[in-house]
Amino acid sequence: MATLKELQENLTPQQQMAAHLLVANEFSGKEKRSQEELAEEIGITRQALHQWRTQNVNFIRYQAALTDMKLDSYRSLVDSRLMALIERGPSNNGIPSIKAIELYYKLSGRLVERREVTQFTEQQEGRRRLTDEEVAQGLEELNDLLN
């Protein structure tokens, strides 16, 4: 996987600025700016910004890497809130949140969801396989019922 620096090298300064502004805008909450406002600040058209965001693989990867960095910066806050839910429960009633405990164990790798599919043979299920003639006869009977 390419580093942030390697991704950055494939973009113009305007594209780098655009990616930073887009990520900051997404995390800004209620104070979001329009794509047109961002494009104007960067010095490009809204269409050019849209094209970078949707068709330029290097730009998309760079913006995703910036978003990952931003999310990583919230890790200690999220972890502390998770632990508070475990310790005090969701409504501070002293009862731990089972969902929070489950999430903690999943994140720590101690709880893994596993689904097992078991395939039975027809003999194990106590059934026999129908012949083509039996299937055709059954279809005829269904058609007669429908008509």
Rank of each mutant, 00 (worst) to 15 (best):
L71P: 02
E102G: 09
E116T: 13
S73I: 06
T54K: 13
F59D: 00
Q137A: 13
P13A: 07
S73V: 08
Y104C: 06
K30C: 05
S80E: 09
A65K: 01
Y74R: 10
L145V: 13
S91W: 03
E36C: 05
T118K: 08
Q35P: 08
E31N: 11
A24V: 04
L77W: 12
M83D: 14
E122I: 13
P90E: 07
A39V: 02
L111N: 07
Q14R: 10
L111H: 03
R61D: 13
E41V: 09
L130M: 14
G89C: 03
L111W: 04
E133Q: 15
E116L: 15
Q51K: 13
A24M: 06
Y62E: 00
I95E: 00
E87N: 12
R88T: 05
L7M: 01
E26L: 07
Q119I: 15
L130D: 09
Q137T: 14
L85R: 00
E122D: 14
Y74D: 10
V112T: 14
Y104N: 07
H50S: 15
K32F: 03
Q14I: 07
A18R: 01
N56W: 07
L85Q: 01
T118P: 07
P96E: 00
N56E: 15
R129S: 15
E9S: 13
A64H: 08
G126E: 04
G109C: 03
F120E: 15
H20E: 11
E36P: 06
K106T: 11
R46V: 05
A2I: 09
L66K: 00
Q119C: 10
R81A: 12
Y62A: 02
K30S: 10
E141A: 08
E113N: 12
M17R: 13
S34E: 02
N93I: 05
D72F: 09
S28W: 05
L130F: 10
E36L: 08
G89F: 00
R128G: 09
N92Q: 11
N147V: 09
S108T: 15
G43F: 01
L107V: 04
Q35T: 06
E134C: 03
I42D: 02
V23E: 06
Q124M: 15
Q137P: 06
Q119N: 12
N10Q: 14
G89T: 03
L85S: 00
D132G: 11
T12G: 02
G109D: 02
G89I: 05
M69Q: 15
T121F: 04
S76F: 14
W52R: 00
R81S: 10
L142P: 09
Y104P: 03
K99G: 11
A64V: 06
N56T: 09
A48P: 01
D144H: 14
N143D: 12
E134G: 01
G29D: 02
T54R: 06
L82E: 00
R115W: 10
A65I: 01
A39D: 01
S91D: 13
A24R: 13
A24Y: 06
A39R: 00
S91G: 10
R129V: 15
A64M: 08
T45V: 03
L145T: 14
V112N: 11
D72W: 07
T67G: 04
R61M: 11
R110L: 08
S28F: 06
T12Y: 02
L111E: 08
Q15S: 02
P90S: 05
Y62R: 02
